[in-house]
């Protein structure tokens, strides 16, 4: 015989539900406490790790890269904040310092290259300026790219322009550069002569005259390209930032 649900049964059920609820809250609280503890623990560990490896962070480029990757995998950007426990890592300091030095090199060479510099030249100049100690020398392209990316947040005045395969230029003057412009830089660097022309772009990329001229004139307007009208055949557009004698010349 089936028993009908009586008042007692309902009360019993409610009681059970309340117990479950309490238990649930308890578990949640426990978990929260645990996570907080874990975070605390993590933080303490990380701080320990940081103080222990502070020198390593400053010295070792591979270490920095791996650390950055580790942070990225858990969704943390140690460079985005100078506050909190990340700052004790010194990693932000490292990139901050590097960024300041990048700006210095860009300013010093702006006069000759119009505010466009290859990552290679930037690295060489920076290393020279940083002094002879080994740790000062171990600056990788990866470090430079990260620090430069940070500088982008200051506005349109700073830009990282990829050109060619794994090659980058740092632009330190305001002005948008399009795909066409970086393609032209790629062509100028691969021609190894630091210049291109309308007919060269026609031959290599099958670009129409108009397209090439528009892009090239834009680069002249930006102060990144110089024109040479003494070629017997056509107007040439030169990039001091890719011209060997310019790259090797002492700044100022």
């Amino acid at each position: 015989m089936r028993r009908r649900a009586g008042l007692g049964a309902i009360q019993k059920q409610r009681l059970e539900q309340e117990k479950y609820k309490d238990k649930g809250t308890e578990i949640q609280e426990n978990q929260f406490e645990q996570i907080t503890k874990q975070m605390e623990f993590f933080k303490v560990n990380l701080e320990e790790f940081a103080t222990k490896h502070k020198n390593e962070i400053k010295k070792n480029t591979e270490f920095r890269r791996q650390f950055q990757e580790m942070c990225a995998s858990i969704g943390v950007d140690p460079l985005s904040s100078g506050k909190g426990f990340w700052s004790v890592l010194g990693i932000g300091d490292f990139y901050y310092e590097l960024a300041v030095q990048i700006v210095e090199v860009c300013l010093a060479t702006n006069d000759k290259n119009g505010g466009l510099i290859t990552l290679e030249e930037l690295r060489e100049r920076l290393i020279k300026a940083r002094g002879k100690r080994k740790e000062h020398q171990e600056i990788s392209k990866d470090d430079l790219l990260r620090a430069s990316q940070k500088l982008k947040s200051f506005g349109s005045g700073f830009n990282v322009i990829p050109y060619g395969k794994g090659k980058y230029m740092i632009q330190s003057v305001p002005g948008e550069l399009s795909m066409d412009h970086s393609t032209i830089l790629t062509q100028a660097s691969s021609s190894n002569r630091a210049y291109v022309s309308v007919s060269y772009l026609k031959k290599e990329l099958n670009w129409e005259k108009e397209r090439s001229e528009n892009a090239l004139e834009h680069l002249v307007k930006q102060g990144l390209a110089w024109i040479d009208t003494q070629d017997t055949y056509e107007k040439l557009y030169y990039f001091p930032s890719l011209f060997n004698d310019c790259v090797n010349a002492t700044a100022n």
């Binding site: 119009g114 210049y195 002249v220 307007k221 102060g223 110089w226 024109i227 040479d228 009208t229 003494q230 070629d231 040439l236 030169y238 001091p240 011209f243 004698d245 310019c246």
Partner: peptide, 13 residues
Amino acid sequence: FPPFFTLQPNPET
């Protein structure tokens, strides 16, 4: 630098 011998159109350059 060949363009050094051509007067540049961009005023800053």
